[in-house]
């Protein structure tokens, strides 16, 4: 009775029937309507055994615990900072999660993080009323001085990073820049040469726009000068 109506990696739209019958299970991006499984988002179908999932191609960032994100300081409160992390809710860094040293009561907190500063931080807790707590204590978490921040679609972050970081390390290597990608789709780029910085940004833009095409790593490689190809030919 049960039947799958789509193939793996098909692009589906909201309301489209993906499968009929009760043999399949709806996962993220899908829902069951009576005997049918329908898509609830624009995305790519992912079939995994009996599970049917839709990986979104667009959409807002939904914060999760343990995500490493990039945020911008928008407010300084009595005991910490409030950050915009690109979702519907603000995030908080409390004093003890923000700085290592002892901070005297009533001292000026803007000396640590000022308005407009970008910070790489980790989500430690999300309360039921959507209060998000961040920490700066952890490996690689810090305030981001210099460089610039760009925004990409949050669901495409895994593609920008690539398998085991292949894509991001390719861009880093070719443009000689430092890049940090937050799970919220904010990307920090810093390099010695501003032109290379822009080139890295453009490369990330291409990945963001053409995320579902095959052979993207080769394309980016070519865009950034394609030294790898020459080396391969020589060998």
């Amino acid at each position: 009775m049960s039947e799958i109506l789509v193939k793996d990696k098909d692009v589906v739209i909201p309301g489209q029937t993906l499968a009929t019958g009760m043999d399949y299970l709806p996962a993220n991006g899908t829902l069951r309507e009576e005997e049918k499984i329908i898509s609830s988002q624009v995305g790519l179908v992912n079939l995994n055994g009996r599970l049917i999932k839709v990986i979104p191609l667009t959409g807002p960032y939904i914060p999760k615990k343990d995500d490493v994100v990039i945020g911008k300081v928008v407010d300084i409160t009595l005991n910490g900072w409030r950050l915009d992390i690109g979702c519907a809710y603000h995030a908080n860094i409390s004093l003890r999660d923000g700085v290592e040293e002892f901070v005297e009561r009533g001292s000026d907190l803007s000396q640590y993080y000022n308005y407009g500063d970008y910070v790489m931080a980790k989500i430690t807790n999300i309360s039921s009323s959507k209060l998000i707590d961040l920490t700066i204590k952890g490996h690689g978490l810090r305030k981001l001085t210099e460089g610039q921040v760009m925004k990409i679609t949050p669901s495409k972050v895994p593609r920008v990073i690539g398998k085991q970081g292949s894509m991001i390390s390719l861009i880093k290597e070719k443009t000689n820049t430092k890049i940090l990608v937050g799970q919220n789709g904010w990307v920090w780029i810093s390099g010695q040469d501003p032109e290379k910085e822009i080139k890295a940004m453009n490369a990330i833009k291409i990945v963001n726009e053409e995320s579902q095409t095959d052979g993207l790593t080769d394309k980016i490689d070519k865009y950034l000068g394609g030294k790898n190809d020459i080396q391969k030919k020589k060998q």
């Binding site: 309301g15 609830s40 988002q41 667009t58 807002p60």
Partner: peptide
């Protein structure tokens, strides 16, 4: 709304 990625049952 579909373009913005808001989950929905149908168009």
């Amino acid at each position: 709304l579909a373009d913005a990625g808001i989950p929905m049952k149908d168009l």
